[in-house]
Structures are given as structure tokens and as C-alpha cells.
Simulated scan of single mutants.
Amino acid sequence: MRISVPTIPAAILSSTSSAKPISPAAAVERIASFLASGNVATVTGAGVSVDSGIRAYRGSKGRYLNPNYKPIFYQELVDATKKGFAFRQRYWLRSYLGYKPVRDALPNTTHYALAALQYTNIIPKLITQNVDGLHHKALAGIWDEARMNQHILELHGSLHKVHCSHGHIVDRDTFQDRLSVANPQWKAYMDELEATGQRPRTNPDGDVFLEGVDYGTFKVPECPDCLLESRLNSILKPELIFFGESIKREVRDRSQLDVENCSRLFLVGTTLATYSAFRLVKHALELKKPVLLLNVGPTRADPLSGVEKIELPSGTVLRDAVRTVLGSRAIQDSVVDAMLHSGVVRPPIDDD
């Protein structure tokens, strides 16, 4: 079976935008009106994290920012042969260098605006395609991990845990330390990059762009838990969904149930190129639920009747929309007030 990288149909990329021009002030009022009744399920994508310094896969024209982007597919990563080990060397070297910028990224104003809506139960369920954990960071100290996991569904998993093919799980920072010990020369290279302020081009999943590198020099350590069981096993992957890998049934079912139980669906910063997210929009439309899309550039949902689109960056309008929805509570509730005064704005340089 041939598996390809999800994309937006060429006919959509070449067509004129379906979104009517709108001023930021009018967009604030429209978004606030859409959210006001509450019980809004929300789906977020890579565009939400751009102001945190994490590049999106696609630019404002809907095309990949890196035209030579060649991800490693699930079947390649878990291949038990020497060929598969070479794929793991390539993946883990690039991920080793790219993980720290994603791990250290801070929530931006959009993350905190959405967190305020979650905290006030305007958005009882948030489904994110992102694996950076920034929605959780925005609620850290307000909700415990159990409550966050109850209200936030990571559709494509998380970059912050690693598991082997026999089910042993380790947190990513610990695994990162293991990679450093096994690869002192690459640890020195990463330290040099950090000292000079340089940073390889990083994708949203922590995978960096490298040229002219001998991946064969990178050592992928064996799983220590498997070694204790008298087994050699270097087949390790982060707890995220790779291209060609199926989403767990319980995650798929929960995402669909979240859409079924909501009154309306709000989409933020996503092109909906992956079917796992696009099908949620189709399901909402089948159930006759209102759908509002806030995104810059073409999306897979543009031709769909019933999807209202506002083509503006979320960072320019969403915080003011939340203030409008919450009214006096935005000032009187100290937690909400703090959220609406929080968030970095550090977009990558020359992103498009």
C-alpha cells in the first residue's frame, strides 16, 4: 500500500480564497458571537504554535515551507532490519537536535486565550493536532494533569514520551540524556549551536532539517528495560503518530464523541490536511453543527458548504474575542485576567 504525505488538493491551493475580507474588529465580534453560547469543541493545528517560535508545516499559501520535506514513515521507523536501523539513526539525530527548542517553547497569546475559554467551560473539549504540549503548559498550575488530559485530547500524540516496541515507556528528557551519553560528539555540536545562538530549521514535531550529515555516526541506544529482559531492542519511537501509522481507536472514538457532544465546532490554525482532523469537520457538518474556521491560507475545508472562514492570524484577534465573550469576568476573575495578560509572541524569522 502506498502511503503519501497528507496535503491540500492542488485545485484548492490555486483557487481564490473563499473567505470574505474582514477587519480585526469585526472578526473579534464574529468569533465572540460564535463562542458566546458555550459548549464549543475546538480543533487546533500547527498555526496555533507559530507565535511560540515553532514553525508550521505550511505557509500562508498552503504549501510546505520546506519543499524537500521527506518525513520518515512509521513502517520505516519500526523496521527490524538494518535498513530500519538506518532510518532510526536519521530520525533520532534530527529529533535529538530539534527537541530542545520545542520542549523549551512557551505558550503564546492564542494558547492562553483558549486556556481561558477552557477554564470558563466555554470550550469543554479541545482537540489538538500538535505534539508540543503547549496547551497543557498554558493550564499548568491551574488544572492538574488528570483534568487537563480529560479536557485536552492530543490527536497525534505527544513528543514528550518515548516507548519501545515492547511497550516500555520513558519520559523524553530521560531518553534525551541517554542519546547525549551515547553520542558525545553530537552533544558537543548541540552545545555549540546553543552557545552561538544558531538553530537548525525545526518542524512542529521536533524534526530538524540537516544537509551533508553522516547519519551512520549516530548511536541509538538499546532499550534498558529490554536489556533487563535479555533482549536487544533499538526500536524506539516518540508517543506521536507518524505518517502511515493509525491513530488508536480510543483516540479516534473520543475525538468523534467530542464533536457529537458539542453544540458547534471552532477550528484554529489548521489547514486540515490530515484526514484525522478533516473527518471531524465532515462529521460536524453531517450533524448540522455550525463550524467556524480561523486560519491564514488555504485549507482542505475551503470547498465545504457550511464552513465559515475568517482569514486572520489567531494571535491578532482571539484574545480580544475572549475578553468580549467573558465580559466583566475577564477582569474580575484573577485567573482569567492573568491568562489574558500572558503569552509570548516570538514567531520564527522568515517563516514563509
Score class of each variant (00 low, 15 high):
residue 58 R to H: 11
residue 90 R to P: 09
residue 80 A to V: 15
residue 90 R to N: 12
residue 87 F to W: 13
residue 92 W to L: 03
residue 124 P to I: 00
residue 152 I to W: 01
residue 65 L to I: 15
residue 82 K to V: 15
residue 154 E to R: 00
residue 130 N to M: 01
residue 167 G to P: 02
residue 183 N to T: 07
residue 79 D to I: 04
residue 58 R to E: 06
residue 169 I to M: 09
residue 164 C to K: 02
residue 106 L to E: 12
residue 127 I to F: 09
residue 127 I to W: 11
residue 118 Q to Y: 07
residue 50 V to H: 05
residue 172 R to T: 03
residue 143 W to R: 01
residue 85 F to I: 14
residue 104 D to G: 09
residue 48 V to Q: 04
residue 84 G to S: 07
residue 154 E to W: 05
residue 74 Y to W: 13
residue 127 I to L: 07
residue 139 L to N: 05
residue 173 D to V: 02
residue 138 A to S: 13
residue 161 K to L: 13
residue 109 T to E: 09
residue 153 L to R: 07
residue 84 G to K: 00
residue 171 D to R: 04
residue 187 K to D: 12
residue 155 L to R: 02
residue 147 R to A: 11
residue 146 A to Y: 11
residue 70 K to Y: 07
residue 62 G to F: 01
residue 156 H to N: 10
residue 95 S to P: 08
residue 174 T to C: 10
residue 170 V to P: 05
residue 174 T to P: 07
residue 115 A to R: 06
residue 55 R to Q: 12
residue 156 H to F: 13
residue 137 K to D: 03
residue 51 D to N: 14
residue 70 K to G: 10
residue 161 K to N: 13
residue 140 A to P: 07
residue 99 Y to L: 15
residue 180 S to M: 13
residue 121 N to P: 01
residue 47 G to T: 05
residue 69 Y to L: 12
residue 76 E to H: 14
residue 51 D to L: 14
residue 119 Y to T: 05
residue 178 R to A: 09
residue 59 G to E: 07
residue 138 A to Y: 02
residue 154 E to H: 11
residue 178 R to H: 10
residue 53 G to P: 01
residue 61 K to P: 04
residue 78 V to L: 00
residue 145 E to H: 12
residue 169 I to K: 13
residue 180 S to C: 10
residue 183 N to F: 06
residue 169 I to T: 12
residue 46 A to D: 04
residue 153 L to T: 07
residue 88 R to Y: 08
residue 89 Q to N: 11
residue 168 H to A: 06
residue 161 K to S: 14
residue 69 Y to N: 06
residue 48 V to C: 00
residue 76 E to P: 07
residue 47 G to D: 01
residue 124 P to K: 04
residue 128 T to V: 08
residue 147 R to E: 15
residue 173 D to L: 06
residue 125 K to C: 10
residue 188 A to Y: 07
residue 67 P to S: 05
residue 100 K to Y: 12
residue 102 V to A: 00
residue 56 A to Y: 04
residue 106 L to M: 13
residue 70 K to P: 12
residue 164 C to I: 10
residue 82 K to E: 15
residue 189 Y to K: 15
residue 63 R to E: 15
residue 156 H to L: 13
residue 64 Y to Q: 06
residue 96 Y to T: 05
residue 49 S to M: 06
residue 79 D to E: 07
residue 143 W to T: 01
residue 125 K to D: 14
residue 163 H to F: 12
residue 108 N to W: 03
residue 75 Q to M: 11
residue 170 V to I: 14
residue 149 N to M: 12
residue 161 K to H: 14
residue 85 F to W: 12
residue 181 V to M: 09
residue 60 S to N: 10
residue 98 G to N: 03
residue 107 P to R: 02
residue 102 V to E: 01
residue 154 E to K: 03
residue 109 T to V: 12
residue 135 H to L: 15
residue 162 V to D: 01
residue 155 L to Q: 03
residue 111 H to P: 00
residue 105 A to F: 11
